[in-house]
């Protein structure tokens, strides 16, 4: 083998293991799902070998699915908003702590990611139940008369998802915050800005790219989350992922389930690409 051809094939050879993994575990299953979504389904005989647009037409013509996708989008948006409102101040407080406390609190913030999803969610369902800790405390404090419906409700799902998504927001904002020049805040103060103006006009705008990238992560992970909506939302609060699960395992209508999954993927990818393009355009000059 000549040197030239060797150097040309080398990158491919070196990246072969990861390419194989990527192809085998991501591209092939996705392609199979996409193909499956075009298969004909017969309620008596199951999945057929013929192809059709029927599954997509069924989804797009049924307002039930619009509601389903809208509910999922609202849920993800709610989680994203809460993560921003809680995560940004949390990260700023964290960044001002003494190093030894920083470590402890970092572990606490990352905690939800370290616990099994089943254990975490079951723990929350104990807290959220009608006789659960949260309702009981609120009643004994006299803030409410009757227990709130937290389990099997949007409120409950959003609370639990926010808990587990918060670390992603904190990490994204933290990375941006570390790049800020601490003297910039001093500069704003000495130019006559009070602490609040310094935050809103100088610190926050610089954190925006981090907040936006954190928001993308949180939104997409919430929209595709399964265990939490399934266990906390249950049958009463269906989202896209749980309905895909139902089509596959209860109705046994695999092609329809696959079609919903493909639409969810398209939805998430377009949100990510749209936001990415927005961020790049908006912050191109500012952070080079």
């Amino acid at each position: 083998m000549s040197d030239a051809s060797k150097s040309a094939s080398q990158p491919w050879l070196l990246s072969f293991p990861s390419l194989a993994l990527f192809l085998g575990l991501l591209v092939v299953p996705l392609a199979l799902t996409a193909i499956l979504s075009f298969n004909v389904f017969d309620s008596m005989m199951g999945t057929q070998d013929d192809y059709t647009f029927g599954n997509y037409l069924e989804i797009l013509s049924d307002s039930y699915y619009y509601e389903l996708f809208l509910r999922t989008a609202l849920m993800s948006a709610g989680v994203t908003l809460l993560c921003i409102l809680l995560g940004v101040p949390e990260t700023i407080i964290l960044s001002r702590m003494q190093p030894r406390y920083q470590g402890i609190f970092f572990v606490m913030i990352l905690g939800p990611l370290l616990i099994s999803v089943v254990v975490r969610t079951l723990g929350w369902s104990i807290m959220l139940g009608r006789e659960g800790l949260i309702n009981q405390s609120l009643i004994s404090l006299g803030l409410i008369e009757a227990p709130l419906q937290l389990m099997y409700s949007m409120t409950g799902v959003v609370i639990v998802l926010t808990h587990v998504m918060l670390p992603f927001m904190v990490i994204a904002v933290w990375t941006t915050l570390q790049k800020l020049d601490p003297q910039v805040a001093d500069a704003a103060r000495s130019l006559g800005a009070g602490s609040w103006t310094t935050f809103s006009r100088v610190i926050l705008p610089q954190l925006l790219p981090g907040i936006l990238s954190g928001a993308i992560i949180v939104f997409t992970l919430s929209a595709s989350a399964f265990a939490t909506p399934a266990l906390i939302g249950g049958r009463r609060l269906k989202v896209v992922t749980t309905s895909i699960y139902d089509e596959f395992l209860h109705s046994m209508n695999w092609p329809l389930g696959a079609a919903i999954a493909v639409l969810l993927l398209i939805g998430i990818v377009s949100v990510v690409m749209g936001s990415n393009r927005y961020i790049e355009r908006k912050f191109k000059q500012v952070f080079s």
Partner: peptide
């Protein structure tokens, strides 16, 4: 006195310009 009430101009080593 708070720094924003002092009427002093500070030029920093890093310049501390507002990048946005």
């Amino acid at each position: 006195l708070e720094p924003d009430k002092r009427d002093m101009g500070v030029v920093f080593q890093s310049y501390a310009l507002f990048p946005h």
